[in-house]
């Protein structure tokens, strides 16, 4: 099964939960387990929150773009913003690194994305924006109950 969607929305924190449901209902076609869906929703939250808070400083002129592609049983998520960008991706993706300690951010966003997904890639240019690409295979093992 192949499918594709792209959603674009204003950089408002209210839209984080919108983004989560949007991806969840798209992925629901693959009939994942509850745990798998929770994981996907968590990584979407982390990436979208980063775009809104770090990319755009919650400036509502900013637009977040989220693409989701299903190829057979593999899901690819691409989350991008045209916001501030970063100049040191290696540093930013370290566990516990945060540039906004005042907001009580945990610095664990990228670590969570890396752990819950099969692959994570981050590209960013200072002053231009950021794109996060993640991939995960579903239904690796046959369903045990249902």
């Amino acid at each position: 099964m192949n499918n594709y969607m792209k959603v674009e929305f204003v950089a408002k924190s209210e839209n984080e939960s919108f983004a989560r449901v949007t991806v969840a209902s798209f992925i629901a076609q693959l009939d994942p387990t509850v745990d798998e869906l929770t994981e996907i929703k968590t990584v979407v939250s982390e990436a979208v929150t980063n775009a809104i808070i770090h990319g755009y400083d919650e400036d509502e002129e900013g637009r977040v773009v989220l693409e989701c592609e299903i190829k057979n049983s593999e899901v690819e998520l691409r989350i991008s913003d045209d916001g501030h960008g970063m100049d040191n991706i290696d540093e930013a993706t370290q566990p516990l690194f945060t540039s906004k300690p005042e907001l009580e951010r945990s610095g664990m966003g990228f670590t969570i994305m890396e752990n819950f997904m099969d692959a994570l890639s981050v590209t960013s240019e200072y002053g231009k924006g950021t794109t996060v690409i993640m991939r995960k295979k579903f239904n690796q093992n046959q369903p045990t109950c249902n």
């Binding site: 629901a28 994942p32 509850v34 929770t38 109950c145």
Partner: peptide, 12 residues
């Protein structure tokens, strides 16, 4: 554990 491994379709 069961709750986590059930299919989303059934849970919904």
């Amino acid at each position: 554990r069961d709750d986590g491994t059930i299919k989303v379709s059934r849970s919904l």
